[in-house]
Design a protein around this nucleic acid. Structure first.
Lengths: 225, 225
DNA sequence: TTTAATAATGACGGTAATGTCAATTTTAAG
DNA sequence: CTTAAAATTGACATTACCGTCATTATTAAA
């Protein structure tokens, strides 16, 4: 009987496709994207639950309910699907982190800071798998991922560092070591962001309280004035 | 000729051994420990450089310059040698982190905090591989490691949290959310500690400056008074 | 209905790293 | 020197996962 596959029992086998003269119809393109997104979503779930290394392609295709070969029609490897997921996440985070602008015509600095914090948390909460993926994705998976993460965090640290310098120049901030403190600030935020899934921050009031606490800690420290 | 192995060219093959009536002579025991430590040191180097997953047993035995079989006389698996290394590190860190004591008969609080910071950094600097191992060892390697790390950080967070509560009761600290702020403080420190290898903190003056900056940031924040 | 193009399938071969063990080497006691 | 115990060795069997591809299923145009 050779290698003939059989129809899977309950699997919905098709999303429907089409063809046209110029390669692929727009409908077909949409459906290709849907299938891809179906596999990506399964990947996010699996990576969030097991972490990159413990997750196998087999886990992903089982979660996506597609055959092994199908996976390889959409992604070259486990590396590639994870890269897609990570790039996506880092890009979304980058998009919502805005440089703090001084001077008139801009919202108060504190409001801008709140905006950044709350937008980042919202991105992380938009898909429950994201905080776990971020949390589990540390240095050491792969040289390329290492660089991506390191660069991402370096960009944020750079943003913070420049903000600190401007703040010192304006006389708003005390003298401090901008590089060291920028890392501290990033660290304080990372530690909390990664746990954002466990708190109930979908409630805007709670989110605001969280943001308040974090920003006040960084601004004023913990001592009584 | 079967599976007969040949003498490795330049390898120092023995540490010398001995035997006695009660199983093993104390000299033999010492030498067993030395061989074990030789393999552990190689493991630390390899794990620091490549991370847990990318490191193979083959890498470790090549770094240690012992044969495959020898490795398995001292450790059951890659998991086990890494566990030994991680346990060791966490135990040493735990040992140098002391609860802050209030009241007369104890050094000033600030000095106690400096002590903690500087001792932790010293542990991390005692072996150049340790910061990298800590940095690369995030959640997701293995359920057991996850728990160990999570527990370790939870213990520290607990220490900080209780210190914050006492500080509030004493009227030294402003009102704050102890759990959230404890995590922030831990985060700020983790981010810096992990990079401690890159700074030149062997110099006591530099280490003190580092510690000053970190503690002042947590105490006073960044705003000008 | 027929048919060509596209999509999906899963058995299978290849690869890489693991842990074992029979053989060998070294040690130290007799 | 002889010899038994302990330590070391590396070839090899095993395992587990990866990516391929010939085959089958589905679609939509003719």
């Amino acid at each position: 009987m050779g290698t003939a596959p059989m129809a899977a029992s309950t699997r919905i086998k098709r999303l429907q496709t089409g063809a046209s003269t110029d390669g692929r119809s727009s409908r077909a393109k949409t459906l290709r994207k849907e299938r891809r997104e179906q596999i990506l979503a399964a990947g996010r779930r699996v990576f969030a639950e097991k972490g990159y290394h413990a997750a196998s392609i087999t886990d992903v295709i089982e979660a996506a309910d597609v055959a092994r070969g199908t996976f390889y029609l959409y992604f070259d490897s486990k590396r590639e699907i994870f890269e897609t997921i990570l790039d996506d996440l880092l890009e979304r985070l980058t998009a919502v982190i805005h440089r703090v602008e001084l001077g008139p015509g801009h919202p108060p600095i504190l409001e801008q800071l709140h905006g950044n914090v709350e937008r980042v948390i919202q991105v992380l909460l938009s898909n429950r798998d994201l905080p776990s993926i971020l949390r589990r994705t540390a240095i050491g998976i792969d040289e390329d991922f290492d660089r991506k993460l390191t660069d991402f965090y370096a960009r944020i640290t750079g943003l913070i560092e420049r903000a600190l310098l401007r703040g010192m120049q304006q006389g708003l901030l005390r003298p401090l070591n901008p590089n060291l403190i920028a890392k501290s600030i990033l660290g304080s935020f990372k530690e909390l962001a990664v746990y954002s899934a466990t708190a109930s921050l979908e409630d805007p009031a709670q989110l605001r309280a969280f943001s308040d606490e974090l920003i006040r800690y960084n601004m004023e420290g913990i001592l009584k004035r």
